[in-house]
């Protein structure tokens, strides 16, 4: 009988520390499946962020480097320039990639580094206790916006993917979501495209993944998925940006 579903070799058989209903586990698995399918496990080098996903290397089964908060794309630049034969990707949250690391993000993208960035947008800082992220929506309550985010006080949700799409060094930007099985499949397709671009030496690719954080959205896992669909995608529309 033909085996059509199995545990990816690129994913260790361990349970994660993530909260119930968190999107990181799904995103980790999608990357692991893509790495297996592209047969690149033995040459992939992942760069882990600071944030909830910092220990992603405990879950993936390939070489990984940890970066300081926001510096993942600088670290990845150093790796990829020295070892162009390897496939190098970063996995970063919204605070990491679009607040403290904005400089590193924009300039790695603008240099057209042949890298893949997987950007998890859950509109909140998770690891530190649910503070406002650059992508927090207007009106959204967080630990540091207890009365809700106000545009004229806190600024607007930052659309880093749209900004990056303007840069000549960037070849591919797509925003996907994890709120429904069909969306998860689309997310996987986008991740695969972003890795494929690197294999083909096309330049910088980024996939933004809208991902649920029920704990700090103070919702049930189901409500969190609905909130992505009904609220978050209004501010962050899905689809290919570049």
């Amino acid at each position: 009988m033909k085996k059509i579903f199995k545990h990816p070799q690129s994913l260790r058989k361990v349970s994660t520390h993530y909260c119930a209903g968190c999107g990181h586990g799904i995103a980790h698995r999608l990357i692991a499946e893509v790495v297996d399918e592209l047969n690149i496990r033995e040459k992939v080098i992942g760069v882990a962020p600071v944030g909830c996903a910092v220990v992603a290397y405990d879950y993936w089964n390939f070489d990984c480097c940890e970066a300081a908060h926001g510096r993942a794309l600088a670290v990845a630049t150093g790796i990829k320039r020295c070892r162009p034969q390897n496939i190098v990707f970063t996995y970063q949250g919204d605070g990491d990639l679009a607040a403290i690391g904005t400089n590193e993000t924009i300039h790695a993208a603008n240099r057209g580094e042949n890298l893949t960035a997987i950007f998890i947008n859950n509109a909140v800082y998770g690891m530190t206790g649910g503070q406002m992220a650059p992508t927090t929506l207007i009106g959204q309550k967080t630990a540091t916006t207890p009365y809700g985010r106000e545009a004229n006080y806190h600024g607007w949700p930052l659309k880093i993917s749209e900004i990056l799409a303007l840069l000549k060094g960037v070849v591919y930007v797509e925003r996907v979501s994890l709120h429904a099985p069909l969306e998860v499949l689309k997310a996987k397709r986008a991740i695969k495209q972003a890795f494929f671009n690197q294999i083909e030496k096309r330049g910088f690719s980024l996939v933004e993944i809208l991902s649920p954080c029920p704990t700090y959205w103070q919702m049930s896992p189901k409500e969190a998925l609905d909130w992505i669909k009904e609220v978050m995608t209004k501010e962050f529309p899905l689809g290919r940006i570049k």
């Binding site: 970066a67 600088a74 150093g78 320039r81 020295c82 400089n103 590193e104 300039h107």
Partner: peptide, 26 residues
């Protein structure tokens, strides 16, 4: 060999960390 003018000193030292992590003198 590789020379990069980084966007900041912060970025430069982290690029060095990346290069070093994969075994190169940086």
């Amino acid at each position: 060999r590789i020379f990069i003018q980084a966007e900041s000193e912060v970025s430069a030292i982290n690029m060095v960390l990346g290069a070093s992590s994969c075994g190169f003198r940086a």
